[in-house]
């Protein structure tokens, strides 16, 4: 019988691989927290921790969208301007046209879906590589944003709306609950639906998926729609929190989303990764920022930390893979 010479307990399993990927990151996160609590007295206070969660929430939400796309072997560089375009349109609807906030949000989510659809169609039907396609739409949507808002800054949103991003429930920022909800929904989608299985399959091997009869185009388009909608939702919460909308907010969304996804262990060419990883990725990014604030390090060095963490995370995963392969013999 083949493989009888390899010990059963260490043979690589998918669930185990995913578990290790998440646990190792969680461990890193916890170690960071422990180190921080020694380095600064203000770290381990409820206020500070809630602050971290509150700021990580929108990054996670947008990151979740990017994770879905990257898992399917794509990438979405248009998030910045999807966020700004849908954001300013929603803002004008709410403030200028006095449309109730829930309708405005819904309409703007619908618009986000449409923008995602455009991305998806360009990638699947016109067959442009996602990198190029979403960069093109990034520029396109950016231009449309400017046309729409023309330099204005909109503020003065309704209390109901600003509650979403800035309000608190039992002292906990509401946005954290929203992020939790998004997490649960995306986890459900990725882990417990046929759609999720297909996303992983396409990312792992598009050709084999095609042979299996999976309708690749459909799934990829859906992934881009999800990504754009989450970018939209994220931008809505963001506007809600800072209570203003202008043409250039949204800058850096895509980069942060990709960073959170990569740090979280999602492989760049898809098929491997978890949404839990992205949660941790967003938390790690925020932890670094927070750490720098508390330690008095200029915020300008954040990028350095983020960049290093991305590279270390990916190197770490490569190393773990090598170790796993050794057990296979």
């Amino acid at each position: 019988m083949e493989n009888s010479h390899v010990k059963p307990s260490v043979r690589p399993k998918l669930a185990l691989a995913r578990f290790i990927s998440v646990i190792s990151r969680l461990a890193v996160l916890l170690i960071m927290m422990v180190v921080m609590s020694f380095l600064s007295h203000s770290f381990f206070t409820t206020n500070n921790l809630l602050n971290i969660l509150r700021q990580a929430a929108p990054i996670f939400i947008i990151g979740a969208g990017q994770t879905v796309v990257i898992l399917a072997r794509g990438i979405d560089l248009s998030m910045d301007s999807v966020a700004s375009l849908t954001g300013v349109i929603m803002a004008t609807l709410m403030v200028d046209n006095k449309v109730p906030f829930y309708w405005s949000m819904l309409l703007s989510l619908g618009l986000g879906a449409l923008l995602g659809l455009i991305n998806g169609i360009i990638v699947t039907k016109i067959k442009l590589p996602p990198f190029v396609a979403t960069f093109g739409t990034y520029l396109l949507f950016k231009g449309l944003t400017v046309l729409w808002i023309d330099g204005r800054v909109i503020s003065g949103f309704s209390k109901d709306f600003t509650f979403l991003g800035a309000g608190r429930v039992f002292g906990i920022p509401f946005i954290i609950f929203i992020a939790l909800l998004v997490y649960l929904i995306v986890r459900l989608l990725l882990r417990y639906t046929t759609f999720g299985r297909k996303i992983y399959a396409i990312g792992a091997n598009p050709e084999a998926s095609r042979v299996s009869g999976i309708k690749i185009d459909r799934i990829v388009i859906a992934a881009f729609v999800i990504s754009a909608m989450l970018a939209t939702f994220g931008s809505q919460l963001y506007i809600s929190r800072i209570n203003s909308a202008k043409e250039d907010f949204g800058e850096g969304f895509a980069l942060d989303a990709i960073a959170a996804t990569l740090i979280g262990g999602t492989s760049f060419d898809g098929g491997v990764g978890t949404i839990e990883g992205t949660v941790i990725g967003a938390l790690i990014i925020l932890l670094l920022r927070n750490a720098m604030n508390l330690l008095g390090v200029s915020g300008l060095w954040q990028g350095l930390a983020t960049g290093l963490v991305i590279i270390i995370a990916v190197l770490g995963d490569t190393y773990l893979k090598k170790v796993a392969k050794k057990y296979e013999g």
């Binding site: 990569l262 760049f268 060419d269 300008l300 990028g303 350095l304 960049g307 991305i310 590279i311 990916v314």
Partner: peptide, 21 residues
């Protein structure tokens, strides 16, 4: 053995941050 996209993406953050610093 890491994807060039990922490495240079990380380097982007690092170089920009050093410049800012």
């Amino acid at each position: 053995r890491i994807f060039p996209f990922v490495v240079t993406f990380g380097m982007l953050f690092i170089a920009r941050s050093i410049g800012l610093g």
